[in-house]
Simulated scan of single mutants.
Amino acid sequence: MTMRARRPQRRNQVLSREQILHVAVELLDAGGEGALTVRALSERLTTGSGAIAYHVGKRDDLLDAATETVVTAALTAARPSAAATPSDEIRAVALALFDAITAHRWLATRLTLQIVRNPVGPVTVGVFERIGRQVDALGVPRERWFDAASTLVHYILGAVSQNARIEGDTSGIDPKADRGEFFAATSTAWRELDPEEYPFMHAIVGQATEHDDREQFLTGIAVILDGLTRLR
C-alpha cells in the first residue's frame, strides 16, 4: 500500500491582519529583523504566503505595519490626566517611545526609517501631532513650531537609539554585553586618563557608572523644554 505524504495542516479559522502582526512582532522581538521572514511567519500561522500578502503585503510592508502597531499602542497608552500640563504630555510621549524601544530592540531602526522615509505615514504624523500640539500649548511662536517639534523628535530618536541595538551596527560593541560591565570598564579607562588634562572626565566617572538611562533621558527632555519656553 502506497503511503501519501502528509500535507501540513492549515488553520480553519479566518486569519486576520491583527493576528499576522501580533506574530510578526513576536518574531522580531525574539530574533530581530532577520527572524521575520514570510516563511517563518507562514509556519507560525500555519498558512500560506498568499494570505499574508493579502492582509499585509510584502516583507517591507510587514516591518512598517509592525512598527506602526507597536508605536500606536505605546502612544495610545500614554494618556496623561486631564490636569496634565503640555510638558507632562511631551514627557509622556517621550517615555512611551523610550519604553517601547527598550521592550522591542528592533524598533529603534524601524522607527527612525519610518520618520525619515515616510513623512506622511501614520507613525510620523502620529508622533509629530502629539508633540506639536503641546509645542503650541507651551506658547512657542507659530513660525518656530516645526523647528521646536523636530528638535524634540530628533532628540527622542537619538537618545533611545543610543540605548538600543541598531540593526547593521558595525561598531564592534556586543549588543548583548552586560551594561554594568560595560560602564565599569569605561570608568576604569577614564580613571587612567591624566587628571590634569582631562579633569571633567575624572569628575563624571562615578556619575557615568551609577546613572539611570531613563532619568538621563528625561533630563534631556527637561533641558529642551526649558529652552522652548524661552522662545516665547
Rank of each mutant, 00 (worst) to 15 (best):
Y54I: 11
Y54F: 15
H55V: 10
K58D: 15
K58H: 13
D61R: 07
L62R: 00
L62G: 01
L63F: 12
E68S: 14
T69W: 08
T69S: 13
V70F: 00
A74I: 07
T76S: 15
T76H: 15
A78R: 03
A78N: 11
S81G: 15
A82M: 15
A82F: 10
A84Q: 11
T85N: 09
D88N: 12
E89M: 05
R91G: 03
R91Y: 10
R91A: 08
R91T: 11
A92H: 06
V93D: 01
V93H: 01
F98E: 01
F98D: 01
F98T: 02
I101F: 01
T102W: 04
R105Y: 05
R105F: 04
T109R: 01
L111Y: 02
L111E: 00
T112M: 05
Q114T: 09
I115H: 03
V116H: 08
V116L: 12
R117P: 04
P119S: 10
G121L: 06
E129L: 14
E129Y: 15
I131D: 00
I131E: 01
G132R: 04
R133G: 12
Q134P: 03
V135F: 08
L138S: 07
G139F: 07
G139R: 08
G139Y: 08
R144L: 15
W145Y: 14
